[in-house]
Computed example of a mutant assay.
Amino acid sequence: MMNIREANFISIDLETTGLNQKKDEILAIGAVPILGTRIMAGESYYTLVRPSKFRIDTIRIHGLNPKELENAPNFSEIAEEVFRLIKGRIIVGYAVEIDYNFLKRAFKIEGYKLKNQTLDVIDLERAVCYILGERPISEMTLDNLAEKYGIKTPYRHNALADAFITAQIFQIQLLRSIKYGIKTIDKLFELIKRGEIDRQFGSHIF
């Protein structure tokens, strides 16, 4: 059983042309490695990604315009380095399955098979609240989670900034879990599953 303090995580955030995982494309990737409960900020990774097509109406969300992306690499040019960066790590994110599925599809096109475990800070937050007997915040947005834990968010909707915010939220959640007695990765995932089951059957505060 791997101890949480020895585990390799990576907080990932993407900016995309939309939310359709079959049609939309990645525009930016932000990644922040985490070793146990230590954020490895100096090893952070960020790149813009040039899409094959661009949707003007999404600029208001991600703030990226076609001119910025003209000289950016396309995904095939960075696939190998990104795959090496995240290989063997547990991918952490906010609504992580969306970003994971975008990456999985993009890697598949390039001949890579993404098989990482994923961990969503939303699920972990509910689980931490479950073991501590706290009522979760009603709207589990990234901004609200950051506010709960006193994390500043001056640069929202930038892939690296959001990945770093998520990493900080995750770090605090891990420390709270460890303090309660959750010491291994297996126990962490068991806790999340237990919280989900409990919430479904309404036997606790969820």
Score class of each variant (00 low, 15 high):
residue 196 E to W: 14
residue 43 E to Q: 14
residue 4 I to M: 06
residue 6 E to C: 01
residue 197 I to M: 08
residue 151 I to Q: 06
residue 145 L to T: 08
residue 134 E to G: 01
residue 80 E to Y: 12
residue 42 G to I: 07
residue 200 Q to W: 05
residue 104 K to Y: 11
residue 34 I to C: 03
residue 37 T to F: 15
residue 187 K to V: 02
residue 114 L to V: 15
residue 39 I to V: 00
residue 184 T to N: 15
residue 60 R to S: 04
residue 194 R to W: 00
residue 129 C to Y: 00
residue 92 V to Y: 06
residue 26 I to V: 14
residue 177 S to A: 15
residue 2 M to V: 13
residue 135 R to M: 07
residue 66 P to F: 05
residue 71 N to H: 13
residue 200 Q to R: 11
residue 157 H to M: 03
residue 20 N to E: 07
residue 24 D to Y: 06
residue 54 F to R: 04
residue 19 L to R: 09
residue 154 P to K: 01
residue 198 D to F: 06
residue 74 N to R: 09
residue 173 Q to N: 13
residue 14 L to W: 08
residue 112 Y to M: 02
residue 166 T to V: 13
residue 150 G to K: 02
residue 178 I to D: 10
residue 78 I to F: 09
residue 67 K to H: 08
residue 175 L to S: 10
residue 75 F to M: 04
residue 69 L to I: 14
residue 186 D to V: 05
residue 154 P to E: 07
residue 139 E to M: 04
residue 42 G to E: 09
residue 138 S to I: 05
residue 28 A to K: 05
residue 35 L to R: 14
residue 151 I to E: 04
residue 13 D to N: 11
residue 152 K to C: 00
residue 74 N to F: 09
residue 118 T to G: 01
residue 19 L to Q: 05
residue 137 I to R: 12
residue 13 D to W: 00
residue 160 L to F: 04
residue 24 D to G: 06
residue 169 I to W: 03
residue 194 R to V: 03
residue 174 L to W: 08
residue 95 A to H: 11
residue 105 R to I: 10
residue 136 P to M: 06
residue 165 I to D: 05
residue 86 I to P: 00
residue 113 K to N: 09
residue 33 P to S: 01
residue 121 V to R: 00
residue 105 R to L: 08
residue 172 I to A: 05
residue 95 A to F: 15
residue 46 Y to K: 15
residue 182 I to K: 10
residue 21 Q to R: 10
residue 156 R to H: 08
residue 7 A to E: 10
residue 71 N to C: 03
residue 61 I to D: 11
residue 103 L to H: 04
residue 102 F to K: 03
residue 161 A to S: 15
residue 136 P to Q: 09
residue 112 Y to P: 01
residue 96 V to N: 05
residue 75 F to P: 00
residue 98 I to Q: 06
residue 93 G to Q: 07
residue 17 T to P: 12
residue 12 I to S: 05
residue 163 A to Q: 03
residue 81 E to G: 07
residue 155 Y to S: 12
residue 25 E to Q: 12
residue 125 E to R: 12
residue 6 E to W: 01
residue 65 N to R: 14
residue 5 R to T: 09
residue 132 L to K: 14
residue 60 R to F: 05
residue 183 K to G: 07
residue 83 F to P: 05
residue 33 P to K: 01
residue 185 I to N: 02
residue 4 I to C: 00
residue 155 Y to E: 10
residue 117 Q to T: 15
residue 194 R to I: 07
residue 11 S to C: 00
residue 162 D to M: 04
residue 204 H to R: 08
residue 43 E to S: 11
residue 200 Q to H: 00
residue 88 G to A: 11
residue 81 E to W: 14
residue 40 M to Q: 08
residue 74 N to L: 05
residue 128 V to W: 13
residue 137 I to L: 12
residue 142 L to T: 07
residue 131 I to S: 07
residue 139 E to Y: 06
residue 7 A to V: 08
residue 141 T to R: 12
residue 31 A to K: 03
residue 177 S to Q: 06
residue 110 E to G: 03
residue 76 S to I: 13
residue 8 N to D: 15
residue 27 L to A: 01
residue 171 Q to K: 14
residue 3 N to L: 08
residue 189 F to G: 13
residue 108 K to D: 03
residue 135 R to H: 10
residue 85 L to H: 09
residue 183 K to C: 02
residue 169 I to M: 01
residue 8 N to A: 13
residue 88 G to I: 00
residue 141 T to D: 10
